[in-house]
Amino acid sequence: MTLTVEPPTAQASQLPLRIAAETTPTSLWNDSADLDELTQAISWGAVGATCNPVIALTVIKNHLDRWVPRIRELAEEHPTAGESELGWRVVEELSVEAAELLEPAFAEHGGVNGRLSVQTDPRLHRDADALVEQAVRFSRLAPNIIVKIPATRTGIAAIEEATYRGVSINATVSFTVAQAVAVAEAIERGFARREAEGLPVGDFGSVCTIMGGRLDDWLKAWAAKNRVLIEPGHFEWAGVAALKKAHAIYTERGYRVRILSAAFRNHLQWSELVGGDLVVSPPFDWQRRINENRIPVDPHAIERPVDPRAIDTLRARVPEFTKAYDEDGLAVEDFERFGATVRTLHQFLDADAQLDGVVRDVLLGPA
């Protein structure tokens, strides 16, 4: 499947995403490294993108004519490599190609934007040293690479060390204000160690993702399991509320890292954040829908509080929301046991296994 890329036009300049990207501090990133989609997103103002096993799996399936022969070539070039190693080589190639498209934005924004996120292998989530070593290696694939590390207890330690070693971080598997604060403080500790040794800290572009839609999903699943009914629509504000609160804390404390909104389930996870110095990273189809529906651009949306009735109801009826919304709602040692974390790690690990399976079918043929 090949996307027909629309060239920039005067009409395109009036699209909501483009308006927000050009007139507010809010940065647009594309939640995919598919080159066709990224090229189109750049025309709408995107200045960043993401690759991971889930995305690589989708790109391979959508472009079998290209990637099946390339996997076979990689197998010839690396005759002892297993399917996992070959699959991750595809992830790396996809990432480098997408990073090249973002080089102009990287130069224009002084390294703050123009970044391509590469996710560390989710199978390393219990090994901080392994996460750091892979992060350092990925960061050398291209000058504008930013590396995803999960915001678990192990990941927080890896984030500090990788920052110290010069890696720009995108904290992932992150859903709560407590995780966002722990990530920011870990990055600041890494910076402090660099500064103590006279190493530069001005060329980083680190972000902390809050997967707002996945938080909403978890709260709905918890409520269903516990037979809790609340007013329809309140759940759709949970992720937005956490994102707004984390952004306010970052702004107040001057952390040298930005919040990133990801895992879209509704347009509020973009439209309610416009105006903030943060990143929104919608999947490509969500970008198309936002533009097609001409969602209004409010440059002060980030300052608008979430309806207190939604916050109060969620607090009273769904204690998992309080864990996500309060700065002290979770201790670091509880990050990896939070329901949204468990569900997401399972999905990332499953995608890794599916990527192995695709490579295995290319090498051996279908069973």
Rank of each mutant, 00 (worst) to 15 (best):
L3I: 12
V5G: 07
P7R: 10
P7Q: 04
A10C: 00
S13W: 04
L15P: 03
P16A: 08
I19E: 06
A21D: 07
T23Q: 11
L28S: 08
E37L: 13
L38R: 07
Q40N: 08
G48E: 13
N52D: 10
L57S: 14
N62C: 01
D65R: 11
P69A: 11
E73C: 00
L74A: 07
A81S: 14
A81P: 12
R89D: 02
V96N: 05
E100F: 03
E103R: 14
P104M: 06
E108A: 15
R115E: 02
T120A: 15
P122F: 05
A130G: 01
V132G: 06
Q134F: 02
A135P: 08
P143G: 06
T154Q: 05
A157T: 06
I159H: 03
A162C: 04
Y164F: 14
V173Q: 09
V173L: 15
T176V: 05
A178V: 03
A178S: 15
V181R: 10
E185V: 00
A196S: 13
A196I: 00
V201I: 15
G202I: 04
F204R: 03
G205P: 05
V207P: 07
T209K: 01
T209C: 04
I210G: 02
K225M: 03
L229R: 13
G233L: 11
G233C: 11
W237L: 15
V240E: 08
A246H: 09
T251W: 10
R253T: 05
Y255H: 13
I259M: 07
F264A: 06
L268S: 09
G275Q: 11
H300V: 09
A301Q: 09
P305H: 04
A310S: 15
D312P: 00
R315L: 14
T322P: 04
T322V: 14
V332P: 00
A351F: 06
D352R: 13
L355A: 08
V358I: 15
L363F: 11
L363Y: 11
